[in-house]
Design a protein around this nucleic acid. Sequence first.
RNA 1: GCCAGUGUAGCUCAGUUGGCCAGAGCAGCUGAUUUGUAAUCAGCUGGUCGGGGGUUCGAAUCCCUCCACUGGCUCCA
Length: 646
Amino acid sequence: MINITFPDGAVRQYEQGSSALDIARQISEGLARKVLAADVNNEVWDATRPINNDAKIKFLMWDDDNAKSTFWHSSAHLMAEAVEGMFPGVKFWVGPPLEKGFYYDIDLGDNVIAEDDLKKLEVKMAELAKQNNVFVRKEISKQDAIKYFEEKGDEYKLDLLSGLNDGEITFYTQGNFTDLCRGPHIPGTGFIKGIKLTAIAGAYWKGDEKNKMLTRIYGVTFPNQKELDEYLVLLEEAKKRDHRKIGKELELFTFSEKVGMGLPLWLPKGAMLRERLQSFLQKAQIETGYLPVITPHIGRKELYITSGHYEKYGKDSFQSIKTPQEGEEFFLKPMNCPHHCEIYKAAPRSYKDLPLRLAEFGTVYRYEQHGELHGLTRVRGFTQDDAHLFCMPSQVKDEFKKVIDLVLYVFESLSFTDYTAQVSLRDKVDRSQYIGTDENWEIAEQSIIEVAEEKGLKTVIEYGEAAFYGPKLDFMVKDAIGRKWQLGTIQVDYNLPERFDLTYIGEDNAKHRPVMIHRAPFGSMERFIALLIEHCAGKFPLWLAPVQVKILPISDKFMEYAENVLNKLKNADIRAEIDDRSEKIGKKIRDAELAKIPFMLVIGEREMNEEKISVRRQGKGDLGSKNLEEFVEMVNEEVESKRAFV
RNA sequence: GCCAGUGUAGCUCAGUUGGCCAGAGCAGCUGAUUUGUAAUCAGCUGGUCGGGGGUUCGAAUCCCUCCACUGGCUCCA
């Protein structure tokens, strides 16, 4: 007998070799029907795997993240079985679970899979699921495993095997499909009910573009059809928030093939929005001691040789521009920091000048590959809300903290509460891609970790995500369909001051090396606005709305009064327009509602006679009639408060 | 750059076993209407069907190629 400890601390005895599922069954059949996997001594196990020693166990059901991962991983196997049935002889690489769903990378040989085939695969999967085949775990010696895949001619699994030790190799079989797999798996395929294969894509083997491209099939499954349906509805809803769609509908920005891909054109309403954001940050920055600077869009090649950007990105960036006579080479600036370093160097600096905070909304241009461009989130020309803080080593922490405060202030003002603070460090192994000394990297990485901790940020550490010149603290936010994007970023840099030979005279009258902090709370205006659009579904808070008020005269008899109102609003710095079309009021309201304009002022006979206005709030309907002064005050108060527009 | 898919009017879309001068709604313009809280009516304009090449008596429709976009991969200072 073995002692099994349950999460509530209860201990009960079971026969040696009982599985979690056996134990669940003894508790109740209902429970057994829901158990997908088990947590055995803090390891996720198959619910069907025999437990031979005393253990602490917890049943994992659909509400548990590990159970979901197990469920989706098993779904990947189910899909693989269906694919193998459709295309015999294909070879499989890996099929992991994702945050929402799973994929499997497959070498289809000469077969091509089309979108239409996904439907057939779904049907096949449902059939196989219905058979409720159990997942059978089998420990196997490395030698036997190698033999098995050699006979199959499966170089992919052999490659996986080469990284595994004898004694830790397991096979899983369900129905007619056997796979090298660490597991765990759900008890049987019958749990899988709602099945949707969502996408088909190419993926380089091992993520290396030099390798062969495998076919990746994405899917998501649920324990019942209803949950799948709900998920699909949610996806549809999310697509309605897509900034590319809303940007078009609200006339915020556009692209032109003739101007060039990835080069956004800001339309008047989008430009208004962007300028509101810019002046918001500018104001905050001036209050916290930043000095605005302005630098040109190009810089000499030598500038980027000095900064190290040429060596790192020279080949992969827009090619140089040359002067016609001298053949002197210039590059479009991909970064603002080299220019700012030169501003630092423009005068001898004293420790009394530090920290020196140079800020610029600097537009930069980077060559991004065709396939990578995406709406406003990934473009070739964008504007950073950039600043570089030059400070003494002793000031780094304090400055870094102040920057975090600023970033958080920006995020809070826009009600971005759902972000991840990511500490981006060097790759653990491959350090060839970074410049600068190990010692400086250590100091920089350590400072970021400490400061983030002192600030009480919930952080995740990502190795290999650092910039080539220094580690970063990145603020990541998800878009409408769950993709993560870097918005705000703060970076400690010991390298550029070295490369540009930046110095200051210290109290001791000797030369010292300053430290640089790169930072951008928005990151890029383009990307930030993209995320902002998706965040509020185009219903911008009043302080940002390109048009805050639409004046709707009932008929043109009231145009004069309407213009009167417009002038008064303009004098109060309220962004307003008149809808002077010869349309019925219902139509004007509808159009203003769809344009997501926060306030509509209906003006007719009554309002004119009483010198009032009828106020209507977007999405909320009629608020009744008010004096204009009252309304202006109400608007000002809301603008001041920066309330989110719900 | 790689894999797969898409590309018809400013926008959203119909039109494929190849065959009447390529359609609708919205937007726009003109006229009528002067309107009370989510679509007034009528008429009109607008497309070398992404570009180029090919097959064919005939191509939006089939083939090739280039371009752009979409979903991923790689990359992201």
